[in-house]
Amino acid sequence: MEVRTIKVFTTVDNINLHTQVVDMSMTYGQQFGPTYLDGADVTKIKPHNSHEGKTFYVLPNDDTLRVEAFEYYHTTDPSFLGRYMSALNHTKKWKYPQVNGLTSIKWADNNCYLATALLTLQQIELKFNPPALQDAYYRARAGEAANFCALILAYCNKTVGELGDVRETMSYLFQHANLDSCKRVLNVVCKTCGQQQTTLKGVEAVMYMGTLSYEQFKKGVQIPCTCGKQATKYLVQQESPFVMMSAPPAQYELKHGTFTCASEYTGNYQCGHYKHITSKETLYCIDGALLTKSSEYKGPITDVFYKENSYTTTIK
């Protein structure tokens, strides 16, 4: 009895394709271990004539594949690729409408935090270190965002349907971005203890939790000093293409032309909904596939993004 075979390709990165001759009487799992086709788990399936010449994702289970996976995804987590594939199996079914010149995501599976993050990423200057993220990001900007969303979920250790947080998501993504040249110098002034300067680099240099107003941050924000008295913390120097200011959701007025974009969060910790506000020729609110415009805006804002380049204080 002759062994019926077909020729397929296996890959971990969709760049390096490895030619395989597979036995049609055995499952993919018996031949390769966990195997995925377009995100779908085909591990328990036997090869079919229609699979001839198709590319299958496999887990990096030998040295060659491990090197290829690390170079593309910059992670050695053995569960990463499987999590990416199972997320992709959902995100490829989502709709990605162009809204006001940006790629958004039609609401499904509690994905409003991903839509808000995706919209924000198209408006701030950011370059990702893992080629996987950078490639998928370019495709997302062009309207094909399924891979990018699935990668975000995998890097953030999230599953489809789980509630997510924009600030946490951005923080994970910033860790995989090139923020080497970003720098922030802060000064804390206390009447009792004097003053202390701190220099922050990388992710810490672009994120701040405690106030939404970048102007206020430049002037000074009140913080408790270690001595128990009130101290003032203010920005001395900022070198970065953008800054992200966050605070627990509270009524906040966004003035046209003073910011790049913002995240609105309605609801409580267990259950809520994100919308995205962007400042173009007027203010726009993007909620999944829905767009509304207004000249002014007041609502429960939790993150505001500002364009920056270089700032030095005039406070002496």
Rank of each mutant, 00 (worst) to 15 (best):
Gly220Asp: 05
Phe217Leu: 15
Lys158Trp: 06
Ala177Phe: 02
Ser213Glu: 06
Gln251Ala: 12
Tyr265Pro: 00
Ile15Gly: 00
Lys280Cys: 11
Val236Glu: 07
Glu281Val: 04
Pro130Tyr: 00
Gln222His: 07
Ile152Gln: 03
Gly33Glu: 06
Glu162Ser: 08
Glu253Ala: 13
Ala132His: 04
Lys316Ser: 15
Ser294Glu: 10
Gly161Ser: 06
Gly267Trp: 08
Glu281Leu: 02
Ala231Gly: 05
Phe128Cys: 05
Val203Ala: 10
Glu281Ser: 07
Asp41Ser: 12
His256Leu: 13
Val236Ala: 11
Gln123Ser: 08
Thr116Val: 13
Asp287Val: 01
Phe217Ser: 05
Glu52Leu: 11
Lys191Glu: 15
Tyr138Cys: 15
Thr198His: 14
Val185Tyr: 03
Arg83Ile: 05
Cys156Gly: 06
Gln196Ile: 10
Lys233Gln: 14
Trp94Lys: 02
Ser86Val: 14
Ala262Phe: 00
Lys275Trp: 00
Thr27Asp: 14
Tyr311Thr: 08
Ile301Val: 09
Pro78Lys: 11
Cys227Asp: 01
Pro97Thr: 13
Leu133Val: 01
Ala87Glu: 06
Phe242Cys: 02
Pro60Cys: 07
Lys219Pro: 02
Val189Leu: 10
Ala177Leu: 06
Gln216Gly: 08
Met170Asp: 01
Gln237Glu: 11
Arg139Ile: 09
Tyr57Lys: 05
Thr91Cys: 09
Tyr155Gln: 05
Asn89Lys: 15
Val243Gln: 04
Gln122Ser: 03
Leu151Val: 02
Asp23Arg: 12
Ala40His: 11
Ala150Asn: 04
Ser295Ile: 11
Gln195Trp: 08
Gly143Trp: 01
Val21Ser: 15
Leu126Phe: 09
Ser171Pro: 06
Gln270Gly: 12
Tyr72Cys: 08
Asn147Arg: 10
Tyr274Thr: 00
Leu118Cys: 03
Val58Ala: 07
Val189Lys: 11
Ala231Leu: 03
Met26Gln: 09
Asp23Ile: 15
Ser181Phe: 14
Cys193Gln: 01
Ile6Met: 12
Lys219Glu: 08
Leu37His: 14
Phe128Lys: 03
Asn49Arg: 13
His74Thr: 01
Thr198Trp: 12
Glu204Tyr: 11
Thr64Ser: 12
Pro78Arg: 12
Pro97Gly: 06
Glu253Tyr: 10
Ala87Thr: 04
Gly53Lys: 13
Gly161Cys: 06
Ser295Thr: 13
Leu114Glu: 04
Tyr265Asp: 02
Leu212Glu: 00
Phe70Cys: 12
Asp13His: 01
Tyr252Pro: 00
Ala205Cys: 03
Met170Arg: 03
Thr211Cys: 11
Lys307Ile: 11
Ser294Asn: 10
Asp62Lys: 08
Gln197Arg: 10
Cys271Asp: 07
Asp23Gln: 12
Val166Ser: 06
Met245Ile: 04
Lys201Asn: 09
Ala177Cys: 14
Val67Lys: 10
Thr10Arg: 09
Glu215Phe: 04
Leu254Tyr: 00
Lys7Met: 13
Val160Cys: 08
Pro248Gln: 13
Ile105Leu: 06
Lys307Ala: 11
Glu52Lys: 10
Lys280Arg: 14
Gly272Asn: 01
Tyr265Met: 00
Asn100Phe: 07
Gly210Lys: 02
Gly272Ser: 02
Ile45Phe: 13
Ser295Asn: 07
Asn157Thr: 02
Cys225Pro: 02
Glu168Arg: 12
Gly194Glu: 00
Ser181Gly: 14
Arg141Ala: 13
Asn61Pro: 06
Lys44Trp: 10
Val304Lys: 00
Lys229Leu: 11
Leu102Trp: 03
Tyr138Thr: 14
His90Ser: 12
Leu81Asp: 04
Leu17Ile: 07
Pro78Tyr: 09
Lys7Ala: 12
Leu65Tyr: 08
Thr312Phe: 13
Val236Met: 12
Met24Ala: 12
Leu290Trp: 11
Thr91Phe: 02
Leu212His: 06
Asn14Tyr: 07
Lys46Arg: 13
Gly29Ser: 08
Ser295Leu: 11
Gly39Cys: 15
Ser263Gln: 04
Val12Ile: 12
His51Gly: 04
Asn89Ala: 14
Gly33Arg: 04
Cys261Glu: 00
Asp23Met: 13
Cys112Gly: 00
Leu212Ser: 03
Cys285Gln: 15
Glu296Gln: 12
Thr232Phe: 10
Thr266Cys: 07
Thr260Phe: 08
His48Arg: 13
Asp135Glu: 13
Ile301Asn: 00
Gln175Ser: 10
Gly164His: 00
Leu163Gly: 13
Ile301Trp: 00
Gly272Met: 02
Val22Gln: 05
Gly143Arg: 03
Lys95Ala: 15
Ser279Arg: 03
Phe174Tyr: 06
Gly29Lys: 09
Tyr172Cys: 10
Phe148Asp: 00
Ala262Trp: 01
Lys191Trp: 06
His51Tyr: 06
Phe9Ile: 09
Leu133Ala: 01
Ser79Glu: 06
Leu173Gly: 04
Glu144Cys: 09
Pro241Arg: 06
Pro248Ile: 07
Ser294Trp: 10
Ile286Asp: 02
Glu52Arg: 13
Pro241Gly: 08
Leu119Pro: 05
Val203Phe: 14
Ala205Arg: 02
Asn49Thr: 12
Trp94His: 01
Cys156Glu: 01
Val3Trp: 11
Leu151Thr: 02
Phe242Trp: 10
Glu281Asn: 08
Pro249Lys: 02
Thr169Lys: 02
Gly39Lys: 06
Tyr72Trp: 15
Asn49Val: 13
Lys7Pro: 12
Val189Arg: 09
Tyr72Arg: 09
Leu290Asp: 14
Glu308Tyr: 00
Tyr306Leu: 03
Thr76Ser: 13
Asn268Ile: 07
Lys92Met: 11
Asp23Leu: 14
Asp109Gly: 03
Lys316Pro: 14
Glu204His: 13
Ile6Val: 14
Leu114Asp: 04
Glu253Gly: 08
His18Trp: 06
Val58Lys: 07
Leu114Gly: 05
Lys191Tyr: 09
Leu81Gln: 07
Thr302Ala: 13
Tyr155Glu: 02
Ala136Pro: 02
Leu291Thr: 14
Met85Ile: 11
Asn49Lys: 14
Met209His: 15
Tyr297Glu: 03
Lys201Gly: 08
Thr226Asn: 13
Met26Pro: 06
Gln98Val: 14
Leu186Met: 15
Glu168Ala: 11
Lys106Glu: 11
Phe242Ser: 01
Asp38Tyr: 08
Val160Ile: 08
Ser86Cys: 15
Ala145Leu: 03
Arg83Cys: 08
Phe9Tyr: 12
Thr282Val: 12
Asp287Trp: 01
Cys149Ser: 06
Ile277Gly: 03
Pro241Thr: 09
Tyr96Arg: 02
Asp135Pro: 01
Thr266Asp: 12
His74Pro: 06
Cys190Lys: 01
Pro130Gly: 02
Gly257Glu: 08
His18Tyr: 07
Glu71Phe: 06
Glu68His: 07
Ser240Ile: 01
Glu125His: 08
His18Thr: 08
Val160Ala: 08
Gly53Tyr: 11
